[in-house]
Design a protein around this nucleic acid. Sequence first.
DNA 1: TCAAAAGTGTTTGGTTTACACCCATGA
DNA 2: TCATGGGTGTAAACCAAACACTTTTGA
Lengths: 247, 247
Amino acid sequence: MAEFKPQGYLRHISLDCVVFGFHENQMKVLLLRMKYTKQWALPGGFMKEDESLEEAAARTLFQRTGLKDIFLRQFHVFSNPDRSKFNPAVRDLREADGGSDVEWFSQRFISAGFYALVDFEKVYPQPDFFSDRCEWKTLEETGELMMDHNEILQKALEALRLQLSYQPIGFNLMPEKFTMPELQKLYEALLGCSLDRRNFQRKILSYGILNRLKERKTGAPSKAPFLYEFNLENYNKALREGFNNTW
Amino acid sequence: MAEFKPQGYLRHISLDCVVFGFHENQMKVLLLRMKYTKQWALPGGFMKEDESLEEAAARTLFQRTGLKDIFLRQFHVFSNPDRSKFNPAVRDLREADGGSDVEWFSQRFISAGFYALVDFEKVYPQPDFFSDRCEWKTLEETGELMMDHNEILQKALEALRLQLSYQPIGFNLMPEKFTMPELQKLYEALLGCSLDRRNFQRKILSYGILNRLKERKTGAPSKAPFLYEFNLENYNKALREGFNNTW
DNA sequence: TCAAAAGTGTTTGGTTTACACCCATGA
DNA sequence: TCATGGGTGTAAACCAAACACTTTTGA
């Protein structure tokens, strides 16, 4: 990772991304470990002068994951005046190169929180200039994160759970082809409760955004489940219109 | 309104508020008219160095409405690189005082959108330094607003409608005491459809956040409807937990 | 052949929808 | 006294929750 140069970036504004993946029946989050303080942190970035926040977030995530066209949603802006007080990047910089850009990183930052939903298998985690590791962690493994990143992660989870109930966003965490039981595991992990397999299937299928394939997934000592894929057209329609139109 | 002085404010960051009120069975929005360009705009403001966005929004709204403890929610950040290109404040400033702070207002601003829900009757609209009028407009009367404020208003409405279906936020637009038909009119205005009076009442009461008073509202040539007030305790509980916990 | 797990369907109970009757009020 | 509009109740339709039986697979 090349050194970060503050020239051409907007002052005071940053973004942090909560990248969710699903693997081995568990929700995972992509985290970075700071080089010197060894604290774990969310992948973050800054805005160039000709970018929108969304573009900056997509660029940042491309650098951390190798993925383009990631599903990305802003969910909250974190603007507490004290939130940048103990930014370890400042200390890291002092250690690293004697503090050339310390002033820039010592600024107060207002950070836009994004969450991203990605296919776990497709991600190639890449540390940035301030970090020596970039890894997936389960929600239990995250521990104490840098600055207010625990709060950001918490809010992202809340936003995701909320969205889940009126938009079909969970599917972004699945590979192209997946089985109904796999999808159910995802919902159970996200919602933190177990669901009835038969009712779950009925409900999901009622949205009409899945195509059942001829193929089945074999390998387990049990009946081979069908594979499904998105019906992208109906999926986009559902994304726009939402699910429960009560009233 | 005293002149605005950029000292002590964060660069690049602004906020815009969509203030909703309900009057004569219609949703209204508080707008300002720019002094020189005569364009209408949403009330906006900037962040002081020791404030959070929420505090800055509350301070701004106090100045525009005279109200404290306003119900306020951030809903989206507007960060399109071109959004500040035609900021009429710049022109207004040139006209007003020969351009002392033109540079500051010519910056690119990232704007956090907030929506506010207020009791129409309690607001005393106050123009700011750049505007000569501050008035309520119905959603039909808004017309073409300054910069990207139509987009901001649109997004605020969407966010409000969405929230309405899983949180009891609509009540913030009502006076302390109100009748069931009045509340229904609000929901109908927000959702843009008519609702069955009997089913509406059943549903709202099922949330358990209203107290029916002994009083009735008289004056109309029809049966006097009961007055209701919030049950603040249950209301706050419902705010935290939300309504429809399907799954 | 057996345990594990998936496909499919049914019963039940609650919720939402649609609609009807009666009552109070000011003009 | 009458038109307007509010209070209350109920049948029907719909949807969600709980649950059972059969089928397929690898070991």
